[in-house]
C-alpha cells in the first residue's frame, strides 16, 4: 500500500484562521504577510524593484519601507488597496483587513514583531 496522502486539506496560511486583529502577535503576523506579499519587491538591494525605484526617487535611506518613520498606517493601507504607479493593488481576498492592519503595524513598528515572537 502506498503512502498516498501526504498532507490533506491544510489551509495555506494557517495563521489566518482564528487570529483576530486585536491579539498580541499581530506584528509577527504582519511580518509574515510582508514576507510573503511584499518582500520580493520591497526587500533591500537591486533585484528588488520597489527598493530600486524608491532609492532613485527618494534616496537610499527611504528605499526600504519597513521602519520608515514618515509612513503612516493609513497611507500604507491606502497604497496596498489601490496600488501605486508601478505597484499593483492587493484585494481583500488575498490580504484580509485584519492582516492589512497587522502589516501596517509591522511596517511602522517592525521592532514589535521580534518582541512578539515566541
Amino acid at each position: 500500500m502506498m503512502r498516498r496522502v501526504a498532507i490533506v486539506m491544510l489551509s495555506i496560511l494557517p495563521l489566518a484562521v482564528g487570529v483576530s486583529a486585536a491579539q498580541a502577535g499581530d506584528a509577527a503576523r504582519g511580518q509574515q504577510v510582508f514576507d510573503t506579499r511584499c518582500v520580493f519587491c520591497h526587500g533591500e538591494g537591486l533585484g528588488h524593484p520597489a527598493w530600486q525605484l524608491l532609492a532613485l526617487k527618494k534616496g537610499k535611506d527611504k528605499a526600504e519601507i519597513v521602519g520608515r518613520s514618515d509612513l503612516t498606517p493609513a497611507y500604507i493601507k491606502q497604497v496596498v488597496r489601490n496600488g501605486y504607479i508601478e505597484m499593483p493593488p492587493f484585494r481583500a481576498s488575498e490580504i484580509s483587513n485584519a492582516d492589512l492592519d497587522a502589516l501596517a503595524d509591522y511596517i511602522t513598528h517592525p521592532g514589535a514583531a521580534s518582541d512578539a515572537k515566541p
Binding site: 502506498m2 503512502r3 498516498r4 496522502v5 501526504a6 498532507i7 490533506v8 486539506m9 491544510l10 489551509s11 495555506i12 496560511l13 484585494r91 481576498s93 488575498e94
Partner: peptide, 14 residues
C-alpha cells in the same frame, strides 16, 4: 474572484 479558495488539497509524495 476565487482567491479565497486557497488550499493545497493534496500532495502525493510517491
Amino acid at each position: 474572484d476565487l482567491r479565497r479558495m486557497n488550499r493545497v488539497i493534496e500532495v502525493n509524495t510517491d
